[in-house]
Every structure is written in C-alpha cells, then in structure tokens.
C-alpha cells in the first residue's frame, strides 16, 4: 500500500525488511515518548513495591524503637507516623497491596468482560438482548455501594484478594461493551465464515478467532482497568470499607494522615497521594500509547 503512496517512501519500504504485527506495535509504542517514560516510571514503582521490602530495613509494622512523628531524614526517608511506623516501609507494603488488587482486577475483569461481550456479540438475537439488559442493570447499581457493602460484610479482616475479587466481579461492564461492539462487526467477516465451514465450534470461534482479533481493544482496557481498580480500591479503603489495619493500603495511609496536608506532617498526606496519582497517570499514558500503536487506521508515516 505504501509503495504507491509516495515515491519518497518507496526506497524506505524496499530497504526495510518485513515486520510482524506485534513488532510494528512495539516500534510505534516506543516512538510515543510520554508512554515510554510512563512505562519506565511504572516499572520502577513495581520494583519499589515488590523488591523494595527485601532491601529496606523496616517493614510496615509498628516498632517500639522507631520514634513517632519523625520528619523525613536519612533514617526514615518518608518520615514516621504517630504510632511509630516507618513510612517508607509502609509505602512499599501499601503500594504492593494496591498493585496486587489492581493487577488481579485488571486480569479478572478483562477475562469476564471479554467472554461476556464476545458471547453477546457473536450470538446476537435473544442471547444478546438478555446479556445487554443485564449490563443495563449493572450500570444502574451504584458501584461504590455494592462493592462497599460486600467488602464491609466480610467478618474477618479484609485482605487484598477479597477486594480484588469483589472489584473484578463488578468492574467488567465497560470491557464487555467495548468487546461486543468489536465482535459485532468481526462476526460478519469472511474468516469467521471460513472457520465455521471448516467445522469450528462456537466456543472455538469465540476463543480462537474473535477474542484474539479484539486484542487491541482488550489490551487498552486492561491498562485502563488497572487505573480504575487502583482508584476504587484506595477509595474504599479510605472510606473504611476496604483493606484494614494491621495490613495497609494507599487509601488507608491517606485516611490515617487525616487533615495534615498543610501542617508539619504534610509528608504523611502527600507521599501516598502522589503514589496513587503516579500509578494511575503512568497507566493512562501507557494505555494511550498502546491505543495509538495498535490503531490499524494509523499510517506508518510519522508527521
């Protein structure tokens, strides 16, 4: 296609070797500067959360030898809180728990949503109608109330995987809609007809032909789900309906910081807040970069 587009491209096209689809996506992604910077920052945060606790001397628990309300210093780079907890250690644990929730929610809700949307779009007719009415019902149910009510009803102390399951079970609707819209047009294509005439079962067509072809929509959804899950989990924890003490979460740390935004304990408020913003912001930029990279309508020529 590009051979006839512009003579200037001719030489380029002949000089470069053929590239696979994913290779092209990766190349386009790495040209998106904000997305690449975000990816690096996000990986650093992941390392901070999962590797950091092995390197740092304090954990997230309260220790009697830690002074209370110490300002940031070399011993305690993020300061300490009132009870005598090293905030760097607490931040590592909190970030880890929030990321745990976010990653499980992203994968879980994407699997549910992609299958749901693909089934609805593939069968059309009454199956589609029933499934879409159920989506309408899910849209009407207030998300924070239902997730909060379920998390609040857990008798034992709420752990991160409780939150992850609850958020995934109620957070898949947007992916289902996006995948269904894609599948509605894909199912009319010839390759689906070919798969069917070759004797492929419905399940085979959905999982092997339809869902792989909606991968670009799904991957972008996964990234947006991570940001959504982080914000929901921290909000619920802030409201006291999520992860509970003695475990910790970014929302819980901000709740504990209370009204300290402008007093001498400002670091208790800003550090967890900035961490949430950094995670959600970098994830959104990565999603944006992936969307641009995977948009098939985009030309290979960068202006």
């Amino acid at each position: 296609m590009s051979n006839t587009a512009a003579p200037r491209l001719d030489a380029e096209a002949m000089a470069t070797k053929e590239r696979g689809q994913w290779e092209m996506v990766a190349r386009r992604f790495f040209r998106h500067r904000a997305a690449v910077v975000s990816l690096v920052i996000f990986l650093v945060i992941v390392l901070f959360a999962y590797v950091g606790p092995f390197l740092w001397k304090w954990d997230y628990k309260i220790h009697s030898e830690i002074p209370s309300w110490a300002s940031p210093s070399l011993d305690h780079p993020f300061g300490t809180d009132k009870a005598g907890r090293d905030m760097l250690g607490a931040m590592m644990q909190a970030t880890k728990q929030s990321l745990n929730v976010a990653l499980v929610v992203a994968i879980g809700s994407t699997v549910i949503g992609a299958l749901y949307g693909a089934v609805a779009g593939f069968y059309r007719g009454w199956v589609d109608s029933v499934l879409m009415r159920f989506l309408d019902i899910m849209f009407v149910i207030p998300f924070l109330v239902i997730t909060g009510a379920l998390a609040g009803a857990i008798d034992t102390s709420v752990r991160w995987y409780h939150m992850a399951i609850i958020l995934a079970v109620f957070g898949w609707t947007s992916i289902a809609r996006a995948v269904r819209a894609e599948v509605l047009s894909l199912r009319e294509k010839e390759f689906i007809e070919a798969a069917r005439s070759a004797g492929g079962s419905d399940w085979h067509i959905i999982t092997k032909h339809l869902i792989p072809n909606t991968m670009s929509v799904i991957i972008v959804s996964v990234t947006l789900q991570i940001a959504f899950a982080i914000l929901s989990e921290t909000t619920l924890s802030f409201l006291g309906l999520g992860i509970q003490s003695p475990d910790t979460s970014l929302g819980l740390l901000i709740e504990a910081a209370g009204a300290s935004a402008f007093n001498e304990h400002w670091y208790l408020f800003y550090i967890p807040g900035v961490m949430i913003i950094l995670i959600a912001l970098t994830i959104n930029f990565i999603g944006d970069g992936l969307r641009d990279a995977m948009d098939p309508r985009q030309t290979m020529v960068r202006r």
């Binding site: 940001a227 914000l231 921290t234 909000t235 802030f238 409201l239 929302g251 901000i254 807040g273 949430i276 913003i277 950094l278 995670i279 959600a280 912001l281 959104n284």
Partner: peptide
C-alpha cells in the same frame, strides 16, 4: 492529572 487523582485525596 485529574483523571489520575482520587477524589478523596
């Protein structure tokens, strides 16, 4: 930035 900012914060 505002998209990434939790309302409670």
């Amino acid at each position: 930035l505002f998209l990434a900012m939790p309302v409670f914060w």
